[in-house]
């Protein structure tokens, strides 16, 4: 498996990444020196309890936040030095996000939520097509308030993949869902990863989900505590928790 990894193209390269927050009068060390390579097309699960620094790492990879020190590059492009404009451009053309609370725009329908992203993308798929990929081709004109949590999260996934991003970053995508609905959402992510070859990073504190990953990275207290390659990768619908 390591052989496979070495033959693949490196998408993200992180070395010595730290992140320190100032919270009132306390300094919070969210990340304490992370070294990590992520490869094209793999599905990685970042596993760890809350407060372990998973979201911080994901935000830095996605250009939502910048590291306090250390280095992050995307296809050799230095993200740590990038300015606001460059990060915006990076997010616009390369990254898709999925969040725990879906974060749909309530005043826009399913189709329009996706369109809000495809309108500014370079070679997007049609919003309808993206919604079909997540199995919601029949709920195009519903507002978020008319949809269940699982449906909302699948729209969020459609929104994230509609621009054909190279990487898909998912922060606890099933965190707010029951397990049956969660599995439907994970199936959608799995399908995107398999069919479109999108490099996917998925954060969770739920060890059960780790079994669908190519690789599992454990985070604890801002550091990588363990990293292993799944010898048997299970399909999402076989998972349970």
């Amino acid at each position: 498996m390591s052989e496979l990894a070495e033959n693949r193209e490196v998408v993200f390269h992180a070395s010595g990444v730290t992140k320190v927050y100032q919270m009132g009068e306390v300094q919070v060390h969210a990340l304490r020196g992370i070294d990590l390579d992520l490869y094209a097309g793999e599905l990685v699960v970042l596993l760890g309890p809350s407060g372990s620094g998973k979201s911080t790492l994901l935000n830095i990879l996605g250009g939502l936040d910048t590291a306090t020190s250390g280095h992050v590059s995307y296809h050799g492009r230095d993200l740590t030095r990038a300015g606001d404009r460059e990060l915006t451009e990076y997010r616009r053309y390369h990254v898709g996000f999925v969040f725990q609370f879906y974060n749909l725009i309530p005043s826009l329908t399913a189709r329009e939520n996706v369109a809000a992203v495809t309108e500014i993308a370079r070679r997007p798929m049609a919003p309808e097509r993206a919604l079909e990929v997540v199995g919601l081709g029949h709920r195009l004109d519903h507002f978020p308030s008319q949809l269940s949590g699982g449906e909302q999260q699948r729209i969020a996934i459609a929104r994230a993949i509609a621009k054909n991003p190279e990487v898909l970053l998912c922060d606890e995508p099933t965190g707010a869902l029951d397990s049956a609905t969660g599995i439907v959402v994970l199936e959608a992510l799995e399908r995107v990863n398999r069919e479109l070859g999108t490099t996917t990073v998925l954060i969770t504190h739920n060890a059960g989900i780790a079994e669908m990953a190519d690789r599992v990275i454990h985070l604890a207290d801002g550091s990588i505590s363990d990293m292993h390659v799944n010898t048997v990768k299970r399909a999402a619908r076989e998972l349970s928790w």
């Binding site: 939502l64 616009r92 053309y93 990254v95 996000f97 609370f101 974060n103 725009i105 993308a121 929104r159």
Partner: peptide, 16 residues
């Protein structure tokens, strides 16, 4: 705030 953040996460610029 969150809607703004999400739009930015998807690459909308400050100006937009």
């Amino acid at each position: 705030r969150e809607q703004i953040a999400i739009l930015k996460a998807f690459g909308y610029s400050n100006a937009a």
